[in-house]
């Protein structure tokens, strides 16, 4: 009798980098649609600039390193970096900052370390942090209020630098606004601002929910496990519950989760398989650390939406976390951990 013997793994799936990246891009579509609907369709133009820069820079470096250009461009990872970067930056950002940010992300964050799979820091967050440190004014003041009524043509002129920003168009983000006003006004007074719809951050909440839909789709498709996102949300929520119980003195929980980049961070940033931790426990600790650090920096630091810095800090700690969160080896009873 002739039996076919196959070696493990027996479960096969036709998955590859480009399929995963395509799914991530698809999952970002609802969020981008929400951004365009509630803020401005100028995001599409920014995406166009970001993506073309990404492809050009990526092709240039691949050529310099004598790698097969078309093969690596088709894995779409550069596009994912560019899209994540553009949607986390303000809509009215000048076009050259977008170009600079995407180039920094790919050069400094990714290719200096050897390209896809070797980057210790999340490239998009490296570039975001670099931009907010280098150009703090455009990166914090060029946000739009929801439904501001700014049409595409005038937004385009602002982005291209042809006209100056008219007064009263840009606004603070809800997190920034709440943080700066919370000492002087009560919570009820803050909620009367046009940035809020009742107690909810108008516009921003739909964007967050759209990201959540995309993220849950990726979770359902098993692109990533639930550990890191849950870690982030739990870390942020626990601290926000402890310190934010009184909305008159600190930003409350629902704003922390829904008004900033917490959702996009939880489902699209900390789930990066390269720069994060590896084991399940490690992923949870990684996400939890990002959540806690983000809360600390948001509340007591000077950056109102601190996901980028929190992610970078935990990226820095990720190899160490990996070292101490090795899972039990199959067939061995005790965990063998780190430092002998």
């Amino acid at each position: 009798m002739n039996l076919i013997t196959l070696s493990s793994p027996h479960h096969t799936q036709s998955t590859g980098v480009n399929k995963v990246m395509l799914q991530v891009l698809m999952a970002l579509v609802p969020g981008i649609v929400a951004l365009c609907l509630f803020f401005s369709p100028i995001y599409l133009f920014n995406l166009l600039i970001g993506c073309s820069t990404a492809l050009a820079v990526e092709a240039l470096i691949l050529r310099l390193r004598r790698c097969p250009v078309a093969f690596h461009l088709r894995d779409l990872s550069a596009l994912v970096t560019a899209v994540l970067l553009v949607i986390s930056m303000p809509p009215l950002i000048p076009w050259w900052i977008t170009v600079l940010a995407v180039s920094c992300a790919l050069l400094l964050g990714k290719h200096l370390y050897g390209g896809l799979g070797f980057n210790p820091f999340n490239p998009a967050m490296v570039a975001f942090a670099l931009m907010i440190v280098s150009f703090p004014v455009p990166m914090t003041t060029l946000w739009l209020a929801p439904n501001s009524g700014l049409d595409f043509a005038s937004a385009l002129q602002i982005v291209l630098g042809q006209t100056l920003l008219p007064d009263g168009i840009s606004s603070a983000t809800p997190l920034d606004y709440y943080k700066t006003q919370v000492g002087r006004l009560t919570a009820t007074e803050i909620y009367q601002s046009e940035l809020f719809f009742g107690i909810w951050p108008a516009g921003w909440i739909w964007v967050s929910l759209a990201y959540l839909v995309g993220g849950l789709f990726l979770l359902y498709k098993k692109v990533f496990s639930w550990h890191a996102p849950l870690g982030l949300l739990v870390g942020l929520a626990v601290l926000a519950l402890i310190f934010g119980l009184d909305p008159d003195s600190n930003t409350p929980l629902h704003l922390h989760l829904l008004a900033g980049s917490a959702i996009v961070g939880a489902f699209f940033i900390v789930t990066d398989p390269v720069s994060g931790a590896t084991s399940r426990l490690g992923k949870f600790i990684f996400g939890f650390g990002v959540g806690c650090l983000a809360y600390v920096i948001r509340t007591w630091g000077s950056y109102p939406d601190a996901i980028a810095f929190a992610v970078l800090l935990m990226n820095f700690a990720a190899p160490f976390i990996d070292h101490y969160s090795k899972p039990r080896t199959y067939g061995h009873s005790t965990r063998h951990q780190g430092y002998k």
Partner: peptide, 24 residues
């Protein structure tokens, strides 16, 4: 970039991350 060069770039990026604590 291998070796110390990459080490210094990494230290620079880590310093960038630590700038997040400014004002704490």
């Amino acid at each position: 970039f291998q070796g110390s060069a990459l080490g210094m770039i990494t230290a620079g990026l880590a310093a960038l991350a630590f700038m997040g604590f400014t004002g704490l």
